[in-house]
């Protein structure tokens, strides 16, 4: 039985995704929708981190229920800097790069949820399966957001 490995990996990737979303938010404070939505949906990953820490106990895991990646002083400084840099066109390319990063992180996390769901089904762990069914749709929404935002932003950045 290696389900604990899947939970551990997912706990790590959700933490990472939350961190990536929050960092992206801080770097693009002048792109107001990115700033706010990235924060709103980072919360989903943080909820998942808590739920996974809870679920992990049954499998002998001692995972930190407190999500990592809350804004630190360094991030606050980044927000200030991004506000100032917002008047030039360089952040456009950076935005595309960051969206691409978040997209890949979210896709990886989505796959991890699929792995967990498959394992939970095989092991007939109903609660774990329900957890996956509850959380995975959030991850898919994060994927679609990064994809949609990338599509929407790309043209102006690339042709201007």
């Amino acid at each position: 039985m290696k389900l604990h490995l899947a939970i551990e990996e997912l706990h790590r990737s959700e933490n990472h995704l939350a961190g990536a979303l929050l960092a992206m938010s801080d770097r693009h404070k002048a792109d107001h929708e990115v700033f706010h939505v990235a924060r709103d949906i980072a919360r989903w990953s943080q909820d998942h981190v808590r739920a996974l820490a809870q679920a992990g106990r049954e499998f002998g895991l001692d995972l930190d229920p407190e999500p990592k990646g809350d804004p630190t002083l360094l991030e606050k400084a980044r927000q200030g800097a991004s506000d100032l840099l917002g008047r030039s066109s360089v952040p456009g390319l950076l935005l595309l790069a960051n969206l691409r990063h978040v997209y890949r992180e979210a896709c990886g996390t989505s796959l991890d949820w699929e792995l967990l769901a498959q394992g939970a089904q095989g092991a007939r762990r109903k609660e774990l399966l329900q957890l996956a069914e509850r959380c995975h749709p959030d991850t898919l929404r994060q994927v679609r957001w990064a994809n949609g935002k990338l599509k929407e932003s790309a043209t102006q950045v690339l042709v201007s």
């Binding site: 002048a30 792109d31 107001h32 929708e33 917002g86 008047r87 030039s88 066109s89 952040p91 456009g92 599509k151 929407e152 790309a154 043209t155 102006q156 950045v157 201007s160």
Partner: peptide, 19 residues
């Protein structure tokens, strides 16, 4: 029609960054 039409707030953002 490659993406949703640019909304007003985004137009002002593009003007802000200079594109």
């Amino acid at each position: 029609h490659y993406s949703p039409p640019t909304h007003a707030m985004q137009m002002f953002r593009y003007a802000e960054e200079g594109s």
